[in-house]
Amino acid sequence: MNHKLSKKDNFYGHLFVAPQIIGLVLFVLIPLFFALYLCFCDWNLFGAPKWVGFKNFRLVFGFDGDIFSKTIRNTAVLMLGIVPLTMICSLALALLANRKLKFLDFYKGALFMPMVTSSVAIAMVWYWLFAPDLGLINFMLGNLGLPELGWLTDPKWSKLAVIIMTVWQKTGYYFIIFLAGLKGVSRVYYEAAELDGASSLQRFVHITLPQISPVTFFVFVMLVIDVFNLFGEAYVLTRGGPVYSTYTLMMYIYNEGMHYFNLGKASVASIVLILLAGSISALQFSLSRKWVHYET
């Protein structure tokens, strides 16, 4: 092999990657700088952007603080519900499926199905299940002698409705990831523990959990990002209501930007979203050294 670049190779190489480079400049780099600039501007798409310094930041955190801080609180509550519940459900199912199981492929396929289904269809089905009078969930609550709940009409319960739907939707995907992780744990550890007479609970706590901790960490980080991006399903199910009780950050950005055309404010909110998501991820990474074990 000669190490001189052939002219022909150089030409075709650049030709083949050129479309991606054009896209990189047009659809990533230019918008990125534009977004930062817009944060400091007053603009409704018409006329020229007006430089206003930090006004948008004051608007988002000050006057408008009411709804915006509410979206942050909503996101926090949804996160506290969705992240642990999804992790528990998907890990539990993966543990069940990791034994020698008949029809495993069928279960995998079934669990994964919500993931490939359109978010709008999912929200419509849950809208029906949560319906006040005829909905199946309230019917079952009634049969158990419990009071019917205003899942989509009562701000106290609407978040729970979103949480249930989202956990149902996300569990299958993370189940596949956990299952792949469990398959990777060497049998040798379990055999040694069995010789030592460890109970199945002990084996789970001392072998399985530490061994799959990198996978658990991956799931944890991804789920947090999922919640920050929550939009379609929740929007179709509740429209952010009642009384903004399920209004998420993405809905705020969507409404400010695309309905009221407060492009500066929407840009600031998107930056806040990214900074929040980024700092939580960073926190997760720095704390991970305490509990994630990597094979060396």
């Binding site: 190489g13 990189l24 990125l32 950005i253 979203l273």
Partner: peptide, 30 residues
């Protein structure tokens, strides 16, 4: 194919995966 700057260009394309799409939403719309 061996061509000039291929490592750098690939890195740049890969890095776009790390940029959250929300930040691009408004400017792209504009």
């Amino acid at each position: 194919i061996r061509f000039r700057h291929s490592g750098f260009l690939f890195g740049a394309i890969f890095a776009t995966m790390l940029i959250p799409s929300q930040i691009l939403l408004i400017p792209m719309y504009v």
